[in-house]
Amino acid sequence: MMRRVLLFIPVVLAVALGIVLFAGIGKDPTHLESALIGKPVPVFELADLQDPDTIHRDDIFVGEVSLLNVWGTWCPACRDEHDDLVWLARDEGVRIVGLNYKDNRDLALEWLDSLGNPYALSLYDPQGRLGFDLGVYGAPETYVIDAEGVVRFRHVGVVTPQVWQQTLQPLVERYGKGG
């Protein structure tokens, strides 16, 4: 009898494995959580996109919850989300900091002129230093940063009204109150 019980081990293992595999279906395996969650934004010193003489440091995030949006004119998906970012900034009153990543200043300014500028402040990062320190692996990426300048969340991919309502907005409200 005891031995017969042992023969059930394979089927039990198979079922356990099946549950894990089932949970894995439909998840995006390329999705990565940021390594910076719960940590302050990396130290940086970057020129302003519009005004090359103004230098911004990591203290720009202190005092208010912000979204940090990583974008570039070379990135087609950034074009897709741009109108929604403009809507977010204008109608929802969200503070969005732009990080122009590995781009050309003239092209970026032209883009903002023609499509509208949703950014309260734009950082210019042609070498991608801050992008690298943030662990950016594909634009567009959007970070939720709380009022102490701590990274709380990262969204990889396009921000749509749905992503805003379901994911980003609750976070922004939570950290907005807390801070």
Binding site: L32, E33, S34, A35, L36, F132, D133, L134, G135, Y137
Partner: peptide, 8 residues
Amino acid sequence: LVGRFGEF
């Protein structure tokens, strides 16, 4: 690199 991109 782990600090930036995670253990992945």
